[in-house]
Nucleic acid binder design. Structure first.
Length: 573
RNA sequence: CGGGGUAUAGCGCAGUCUGGUAGCGCAUCUGCUUUGGGAGCAGAGGGUCGUUGGUUCGAAUCCAGCUGCCCCGACCA
């Protein structure tokens, strides 16, 4: 390819409406352009990278025994009503009607469609296990699209679905996908971690996420310093530090007319924040005989909403009581709540439950108790893991302490179990001739997001530094002084054609520009290897070869350049 | 969904307060020169000032509505 024939409108300055580095660089490098909020057009250079990601994913899925299909992006409402998700999904599901006023949606995922296919086409356990995948455009009407293609409304996703007759089979399919994902992210050259995850609204039992580590990530990833234990903060188990000390203080009531927050309480009464708890009121589930429950966590901790929602006594979705509801159920307003004389069930976080001599609201406006001790001043609470992990927490496996870093979620593997097969009656005859409901797994990879995630991890102040596996071209050639010395251009073209004949993708920058802007553009778009052909070096029969991330170029003889590149480690790293 | 910002040439911006000929830099086009890190000279093209309505002799500018886009927040008492 020649730059003179390629549409790649590079920008010298950062576009004003971009905030993360990958978004800025994708715009500046002419990879994408925004069409509307959360919608993008991929230009030739960006599409080349996208296709590289797709191809690696495709090869590894095929190698793992999955088969590629392609399902419709538009899906009939009936299937979603059958699974129950037509009601369950909020405005994120873009619904539309056809000319006959029939309801459809733009697919945010394809569990329903694939389950429908399988229940029609697969009748016997002998046809299983089966794993089908597609690389398709998805649409989710995100509340707030941002960060370019990292959180867009339309995006390309690889989604795979496995079908087995037994839980053991499902587990084996899941493990195979896990291995395939590791190979994919290895080949993509990304620094990633597989972490335990909450299975969330999609449902199911086991679930792991793959995260690319980057400061701009939207998720907090918790690691143990001493083992492989890693989890999304939503799922990271927190244990209490030691056991509860004996009470040393007596209970006393303190007037707190203006102290409505933990911060104010700590500030005005010189109380250590670890000696306070906060009490959060939320709707109770139908499993218990109360309208609301009180969740108690230590003052310096934050509630983990996923853990709270997963608690059997808490209503799903997690709904905090309104101020009016707080008053009617507790007899006091927010800011004066606590576990003493609490009229509703109390669930305390593990750490809050081992705190002694603590302060909390008195359930009477303008009053707090200090020196509270569980069991003595109020009933022993039900104890649960309710809070978000913080740096330095003890890892639950005893291996060390927790560290927290940011991650971009690029993959997610789920063991779905029978959630969809049950709802949609997807069964086969098993070896005993009986109807058996299928066990499913589902496995996603955010293809477009990976492009952004790779840039977040691989860039410098001049632009993108692609790993060899993702680079839109392997090599670029910049001829200098060709207008004075026609040999330069001839040699450049000859090197290009020879490398192309050897199977490499080569970009020849033949634009009629000075060397400065051409070097800058080649750096910006991140081609791993650069050959400079100039009259100066040709005099001694040489050209220059430089890797994108190295400071100095090396001289290579004109005869040896093609072989040097073909043997270069850089093409494989 | 709540709050804030913003909308003027392809991109970045000034002009708006104080109403009166639509401007700057980069980019683009033509010609000549120029080729080792974002060139020089000369010339040229390009804007219903987001949109609708109002005030006015006159609106990019004042007023009102609508829309797009961006940012922050979204129940932790």
């Amino acid at each position: 390819m020649r730059t003179s024939q390629l549409l790649f409108p590079t920008l010298r300055e950062d576009p004003v409406d971009s905030v993360v580095i990958s978004h800025k660089l994708m715009l500046r490098a002419g990879m994408i352009r925004q069409l509307a909020s959360g919608l993008y057009t991929w230009l030739p250079l960006g599409l080349r990278v996208l296709r590289k990601v797709e191809q690696i994913v495709r090869e590894e899925m095929d190698r793992a025994g999955a088969q590629e299909v392609l399902m419709s992006g538009v899906q009939p409402a009936e299937l979603w009503q059958e699974s129950g998700r037509w009601q369950q999904f909020g405005p994120e599901l873009l619904r539309l009607q056809d000319r006959h006023a029939r309801d459809f949606c733009l697919g945010p995922t394809h569990e329903e469609v694939i389950t429908d296919l399988i229940r029609r086409e697969v009748n016997s356990y002998k046809q299983l296990p089966l794993n089908l995948y597609q690389i398709q455009t998805k649409f989710r009407d995100e509340v707030r699209p941002r960060f370019g293609v990292m959180r867009s409304r339309e995006f390309i996703m690889k989604d795979a679905y496995s079908f087995d007759v037994s839980p053991e089979g499902m587990k084996a399919s899941y493990d195979a996908m896990y291995q395939a994902y590791c190979r994919i992210f290895d080949r993509l050259g990304l620094d990633y971690r597989a972490v335990l995850a909450d299975s969330g609204a999609i449902g199911g039992s086991g679930s792991q996420e793959f995260h690319v580590l980057a400061e701009s990530g939207e998720d907090d990833i918790v690691f143990s310093t001493g083992s492989d234990l890693a989890a999304n903060i939503e799922k990271a188990e927190c244990i209490a530090r030691g056991s509860r000390p004996e009470p040393t203080e007596s209970l006393r009531e303190v007037e707190t007319p203006t102290q409505k927050t933990i911060e104010a309480l700590v500030r005005d009464f010189d109380l250590p924040i670890e000696k306070t708890v906060k009490t959060l009121i939320c709707r109770a589930s139908e499993a218990i005989d109360a309208a609301f429950v009180a969740l108690v966590i230590r003052g310096d901790h934050t509630l983990n909403e996923v853990k709270a929602e997963n608690h059997p006594a808490v209503a799903t979705p997690l709904t905090f009581a309104t101020e009016t509801e707080v008053r009617s159920s507790m007899g006091a307003g927010p800011g004066s709540l606590g576990p003493i004389d609490c009229p509703i069930p109390v669930i305390a976080d593990r750490e809050a439950a081992v705190t002694a001599d603590f302060g909390a609201g008195a359930n009477r406006d303008g009053w707090h108790y200090f020196g509270i001790n569980w069991g003595r001043d109020c009933p022993e609470p039900e104890v649960a893991d309710l809070r978000n992990a913080v740096e330095g927490d003890l890892a639950p496996d005893g291996s060390g302490t927790y560290q927290i870093r940011r991650g971009i979620e690029v993959g997610h593997v789920f063991q779905l179990g029978q959630k969809y097969s049950d709802a949609m009656d997807a069964t086969v005859l098993d070896e005993h001739g009986k109807q058996a409901t299928l066990f499913m797994g589902c496995y996603g990879i955010g293809v477009t997001r990976i492009v952004a995630a790779a840039i977040e991890q691989r860039h410098d102040d001049r632009g993108i530094c692609w790993p060899a596996s993702l680079a839109p071209f392997d090599v670029c050639i910049v001829p200098i002084g060709g207008n004075k010395n026609p040999i330069v251009d001839q040699e450049a073209i000859d090197i290009k054609e020879t490398l192309e004949a050897r199977g490499l993708e080569v970009l020849l920058d033949d634009r009629n520009l000075g060397p400065g802007p051409r070097f800058a553009d080649m750096d910006l778009i991140g081609i791993p290897l650069r050959i400079v052909v100039s009259g100066k070096t040709l005099e001694s029969g040489e050209v220059e070869l430089k890797h994108r991330t190295e400071g100095e170029a090396q001289r290579v003889s004109r005869e040896a350049i093609v072989d040097t590149i073909m043997e270069s480690e850089w093409l494989r790293s």
